[in-house]
Nucleic acid binder design. Structure first.
Lengths: 351, 351
DNA sequence: CTGTTAGCGCGTTCAG
DNA sequence: CTGAACGCGCTAACAG
């Protein structure tokens, strides 16, 4: 395994000249360049990234720490991050915490030890200590998707409150008055914000949210299924469900199907999170988040901060959500002519 | 960001004592250990992995370079690798070449520059030059899944020839005499070996393989679909198909379905590669490869080699395949009582 | 345009 | 049981 030194000796120049030729930095004479390149080819020299990183004190690596790597929302964010980072010469490490604070902290420690240049974090909790640990070690962070109490950090997220307002408003406009909500943990900001937006729309429509079923659970299919069971077992019978994310929606749809409920004939459903084209059920009315943009902007913020000479003020970007009306939402109680269930009639075909 | 030196100063010892405490190497007095640990806690010291790796000339990292990261066969191998590597303190980098020789070479170069300790390679081709490049830089390699001409390297694979023999033999025993074969590229050893095993079984049964349809394509769903189309357009009408891998089988099943063929009533199908439990169609008769074992053994071979004092002889491990009879294979032309299509009646339900 | 000096943070070596 | 010296391979900073 040859080194810079070997190349320098063979080319009859100093190591610095070789370094300059390799990195294209500083001035080098064409002759030196030629001699160096010849020596490199002859030796099959490949630079040692480790040494380079140690010396330059930069690894040109970002980390994206997320809570659920199986969720298309996060994989889309990941694509946005990668697409923004790669052209600027940054590699990306992907880490999955499964919503566990401990796993998150473990990963953060590993990332510090590996000296990544910056961390993009979807925090599992508001108080994991991850951000403090990162700051203590001088690593910049960008918080994605979720809102934290302490605003002293860069952040990029979608407008959960506004999106939820759109969802509830859409259902209200269709004539629904009993709208159940199924969301993730109360402690996660997206849950709280989505309930807030929902509440605002209900109050505006003159409906007391206190009379509605608002269930907190997990952002998983199992939890969506379970909450739907509780919903159907209860006294009140909502004519619509607002599902806090796509997995909850899957569980809810499963539960409704088992209970013999047709969507949207018996019950409407609106989902926070759009799904990529080609999925099984592109018939859901959704609040689409700009997931790709969230990832892209977060990576760009980070890279900008890394390149800045002086410390930048923390910035927060909140992106709007969009209502995409499909076939899972309709006016309530229109059971007259029962057409083929919409579940089997997607309006948009997979790509 | 504190360093060993900072800890040493605070603890009033030398850097070496700190190093010894951290790595548990050499002797240290209990008092020193306590002082050092206190200093580490106080400073929140985290070792610099880069420096450690540079100095020790080991990254404790393996790479697994594979041709299709979306194929469950390879993800299962990946799990085997990870499960064997992690407990021994090795991290694993996963790289996807998409069967491209260029991508493979690009990755190999990156891996050399990152100084991974060893590379587990599913070669995209017999002559990419990857192995030569690795050897030139002193990186050990283990070749997975595919056979290469040059045997001068560790290798772990399943017995494709024997497995294919089992598959053909199974169909012959059922009474089939026209058995089409759909496999990947002729240049990939698994394709060639699977055709070999098939040929051996046919010859043994007194059938000239030259009279059969043997189609080479890609190990993809699209290619399986396309080859099936050619199959059905031809004169001869096979009563059974031997599919070279799971993706080819998917494409074939799609093509057969569109042509109105029932499996196994109109045509039987046997597939090389088992699928994980829970997949859409656990009704396929398959030749199961020990994918997890391939990954696990490859990682263990590599780690053993890395730990060896003297150079080891190259070793090759060939693992047997297993025939798992399910519902996609049956005797030919038994169209009498046409039951519910087997495709809708899997005998094994998803887990 | 080029070379010299001096480390990045750590672990190996050997002398105490 | 501990420490000093040295170097892994590379580049920043300066001097020429």
């Amino acid at each position: 395994m040859s080194t810079l030194n070997d190349v320098a000796k063979l080319a009859g120049v100093s190591t610095m000249t070789v370094s300059r030729v390799i990195n294209g930095s500083g001035y080098t004479s064409p002759e030196s360049r030629a001699r160096v390149n010849r020596a490199i080819a002859e030796l099959g020299y490949m630079p040692n990234v480790l040494a380079r990183q140690l010396r330059s004190r930069r690894t040109k690596t970002l980390a994206l720490v997320m809570t659920d790597i199986a969720n298309p929302f996060f994989t889309t964010i990941a694509r946005g991050v990668e697409d923004a980072a790669r052209p600027k010469g940054y590699a990306v490490m992907f880490c999955n915490t499964d919503e566990s604070v401990d796993e998150e902290l473990d990963y953060v420690r590993v990332l510090i030890q590996r000296r990544v240049d910056g961390v993009l974090l979807v925090p599992a909790s508001d108080s994991s200590g991850s951000l403090e640990l990162l700051k203590a070690h001088g690593l910049p962070a960008v918080v994605l998707d979720r809102r934290l109490r302490s605003g002293e950090v860069d952040a990029v997220r979608a407008d959960s409150e506004g999106g939820a307002y759109l969802a509830a408003r859409h259902l209200l406009d269709l004539g629904h008055r009993e709208i159940a909500v199924l969301v993730g943990p109360e402690s996660v900001s997206t849950s709280a914000d989505r309930v807030s937006g929902y509440r605002r729309a209900m109050l505006e429509a003159g409906i007391d949210p206190g009379t509605q079923q608002i269930l907190f659970g997990q952002y998983t299919e199992a939890s969506g299924y379970e909450m739907t069971g509780r919903l159907l077992a209860a006294q009140s019978r909502p004519t619509a469900i607002f599902a806090g994310n796509n997995f909850i929606a899957f569980g809810a749809i499963q539960g409704l199907r088992e209970a013999g409920k047709e969507i949207p004939d018996d019950i409407s459903i609106v989902v926070f999170d759009d799904l990529p084209q080609g999925w099984v059920m592109p018939f859901l009315t959704v609040i689409a988040q700009p997931a790709y943009e969230i990832g892209r902007l977060a990576a760009e913020m980070m890279i900008e901060r890394l390149g800045a000479d002086q410390p930048l003020e923390p910035r927060t970007i909140v992106l709007p959500c969009e209502l995409i009306t499909r076939r899972s939402s309709a006016p309530p109680r229109l059971r007259s002519a029962k057409p083929t269930p919409a579940t089997l009639n997607p309006t948009e075909s997979p790509a």
